[in-house]
Design a protein around this nucleic acid. Structure first.
Lengths: 205, 205
DNA sequence: GTAAAGCAGTAACCATTGTTACCAACAGCG
DNA sequence: CGCTGTTGGTAACAATGGTTACTGCTTTAC
């Protein structure tokens, strides 16, 4: 079976990175020996520990089958580690002649469930932020990155945005206006301009 | 391919239930025609709309491959609907001779990713509750159901419980004591007794 | 063009929750 | 037994965010 999967075995010293957040994703990981930490950095550079991996634990399983082909978090060796990496195609793969449509079905299924998990994990991120300002900053910064320009249109109305961020609409308005007064952003209705990216970043979290 | 999967086709009139939250889960659904709503009821009887399904949308995909074999939400026809139901085993199934270990691998993978999605959706539920009291009530009620008795031990220390619910520890203590004063619960350290289940339920959400 | 509906900003007030700091109860240990 | 560290309750105060209600600006429909 292992031959069929053709996994890559790698060794890491303490504090080495098994994977780096944002890097291209090629292979699902299995920690064979040692201990590693899954950490997520946000835009402000703050780091959150997601989990600690022990021997036998799998990492990157959500990204493996989703549409997103970047590592959603970094994995850092806490001690010397050994890890196996296997490309997700190998798992769903047709090493043992199966009907192609069946294979397609399984792949789709995995992708659907994984995408769902990714979306939920995004939602958890937003909900875990306590201040409205932090939520706004995170939201805007993400839009800014996605749209690539400092001036863009918000994809949601205030109403919807408030619901999405789980806050009251007037509170959202109030806070956005404060941020405008402070010169961090400028906006009118749905069009928005980020005037000070660094300041915005620092408000994240 | 469809023969291989052997799906059940069912028709529903407006307002009929395609699935009922808490019922045993046997088959994954695909909405072929019509429109349906996915709703989640909480213990207090309040209903949240999760999504609206259109033609071609899949429902129950997370439960299908996870360890949990109950419907996590209800699906209600908004208009006359047609839906296809197929048992998840058929998807992962060996209709086309594949090596058993490979099949095992795929099933495990699906289960892992699905369980992850379920856990995240649970977390979202907790984080979406705004009042501390609501969080406590939800948490306690869930423990109560899981442990089956009105007197039980909390699995977390105050510290950890506060972190889990994403609130400050003193605020948690304060609120728990208020609930004790009101006669809804009684507790000492980690041992807790639910004195008024109905009152507790009504505090959920 | 005008009425009606929906959307967004504003302000005052109030409730809830976080913060900080301190204290009491308890567990483990010599 | 008393020391120490941990855990949990308490209280005062500050800050944050929700509520409500009103306003004016846009958009849509007729």
């Amino acid at each position: 079976m292992l031959q069929c999967l053709n996994p890559a075995l790698r060794k890491y010293k303490k504090n080495e990175y098994l994977s780096v957040q944002g890097d291209d994703f090629y292979a699902l990981g299995i920690l064979l020996a040692g201990e590693a930490m899954v950490v997520k950095d946000n835009a402000a550079g703050q780091r959150t520990i997601m989990t600690v991996l022990g021997e036998g634990d799998i990492f990157g399983e959500t990204a493996a089958f989703s549409g997103e082909k970047k590592w959603p978090a970094s994995v850092i060796a806490q001690r010397n580690c050994q890890a196996l990496f296997l490309p997700p195609e190998k798992i769903t793969g047709n090493c043992c002649r199966q009907c192609p449509s069946h294979r397609r079905l399984i792949t789709n299924m995995l992708r659907i469930v994984s995408d769902r998990a990714l979306a939920l994990s995004k939602k958890v991120e937003y909900l875990s932020i306590k201040s409205i300002r932090g939520k706004i900053a995170t939201f805007l910064f993400e839009q800014y990155q996605k749209q690539g320009s400092a001036t863009f249109m918000l994809p949601l109305k205030r109403n919807e945005m408030a619901e999405f961020l789980n806050v009251a609409r007037p509170s959202l308005s109030r806070e956005m206006c404060r941020m405008r007064e402070e010169g961090v952003i400028d906006f009118h209705r749905s069009s928005i301009k980020i005037k000070n990216v660094e300041a915005l970043k620092s408000m994240i979290e």
